[in-house]
């Protein structure tokens, strides 16, 4: 089936098997391997991307369902060669251990702070229930998200 999906601002037209999941489309058709596959059952959040600005677990949507949509992946978060503030905050706070969950964490957190500037630590921890860090490195992840949330509230 023919699909036209805009990913990180670039329109991609492809003929896909209907059972192709969006995460496979991104990783295997477009070679955008920043988006990870973790649990593959919509629990861990490693595959988190944005669809029309909304947080989505891309292992739980068919590419054909995303036909016509705009997707943003971790590769598309930086603008004009500048890291997104959430990427910078993860870097500065070392919000990672092995790094596997990091793209999903950053995508989920970027959308959360966009919609909830000034979020409290409790709200951040609750929101991140859909993203699992198997290194259990949550402390610095939350610290990074809080830094951006505080800055967003102040601006």
């Amino acid at each position: 089936m023919q699909v036209a999906i805009t990913v990180n601002g670039v329109l991609h037209e492809r003929d896909v098997d209907p059972r192709t999941l969006l995460v496979h489309f991104l990783r295997e058709e477009l070679d955008l391997t920043g988006t990870k596959i973790g649990c593959d059952t919509s629990q861990c959040g490693a595959c988190t991307v944005h669809l029309d600005g909304k947080v989505l677990k891309s292992c739980t949507l068919l590419a054909v369902q995303a036909d016509g949509a705009e997707i943003t992946t971790i590769e598309g978060l930086a603008e004009n060669g500048q890291h997104h503030p959430m990427q910078t905050a993860f870097w500065e706070n070392h919000g990672l251990q092995c790094g596997y969950c990091t793209p999903g964490m950053i995508m989920a957190s970027a959308a959360f702070v966009r919609d909830n500037p000034g979020a409290s630590e409790g709200e951040i921890r609750h929101y991140l229930e859909g993203n699992i860090c198997r290194c259990t490195g949550y402390h610095n992840i939350v610290k990074a998200v809080k830094q951006v949330a505080d800055a967003a509230a102040g601006s």
Binding site: K54, L56, K57
Partner: peptide, 9 residues
């Protein structure tokens, strides 16, 4: 239900 990503879709 689920988490924000699940509730969005």
């Amino acid at each position: 239900v689920g988490d924000q990503g699940v509730r969005n879709f």
